[in-house]
Nucleic acid binder design. Structure first.
Lengths: 100, 100
DNA sequence: ATAATTGTTTGATATATATAAAACTATAAA
DNA sequence: TTTATAGTTTTATATATATCAAACAATTAT
């Protein structure tokens, strides 16, 4: 039994709770699911084609995910590409993503 | 590849999202964690000793969990006992509980 | 019967959240 | 340089959520 099981770090628990919060919303759930399924980064516009929500709402959800450390964003020209931080999520909640 | 992976049932996704919602709150997170760790039903009062929140707030959270199908409640006399529906949760999100 | 207990419900309240329109920023195209 | 595109931020709004005090219901103890 490792130390993590005896007393999980507050920030670890916090990250888990942020993941749970993110996945409790249908829009964000679809975004995360989509990103995981395609297995690579996606442009915001591309994402928007698959998850039909207003662009400002999409931006709001993407910011939530980004600020929680669940995704990472890369800018190229005027487009932005979103990546799901799979390894980071798997480190805390192994097997979660594949069961969405 | 089974049918579930191709098109997960709406209600399954809904149940998952309810679990995520439940776990996004610190109080409910602790309740679920405690119930999982002890491995058997707990009295509400007993739970309240371990998770320090107002009794009415506790009741509110327990109702949320119960109505989401995450827990089951049994009444005996004037006391109530709460059980975590481990099998049901594991069926949708295997490995989740052990990683809280 | 009266009092103590166990837990729920109601009411009030403060805060958080999701949504979308409109204005805005930055880059690329014409 | 003007226009179009991609995405963000602001503003407004409606709804959801968490919290606790107080009243309540039900059971058990005195």
């Amino acid at each position: 039994m490792n130390i993590k099981q005896l007393s999980p770090d507050v920030s670890e628990t916090q990250f888990k709770q942020q993941i749970f919060f993110a996945l409790s919303d249908p829009g964000r759930y679809k975004i995360v699911q989509m990103l995981y399924d395609v297995g690579h980064e996606m442009g915001c516009g591309e994402l928007n084609q698959h998850v039909e929500i207003d662009k400002s709402t999409m931006s709001y959800h993407l910011r939530t995910l980004r600020e929680a450390g669940i995704t990472t964003t890369r800018t190229q020209g005027r487009e932005k590409y979103v990546t799901l931080n799979v390894a980071k999520i798997e480190a805390e909640l192994p097997g979660l993503l594949e069961n969405l």
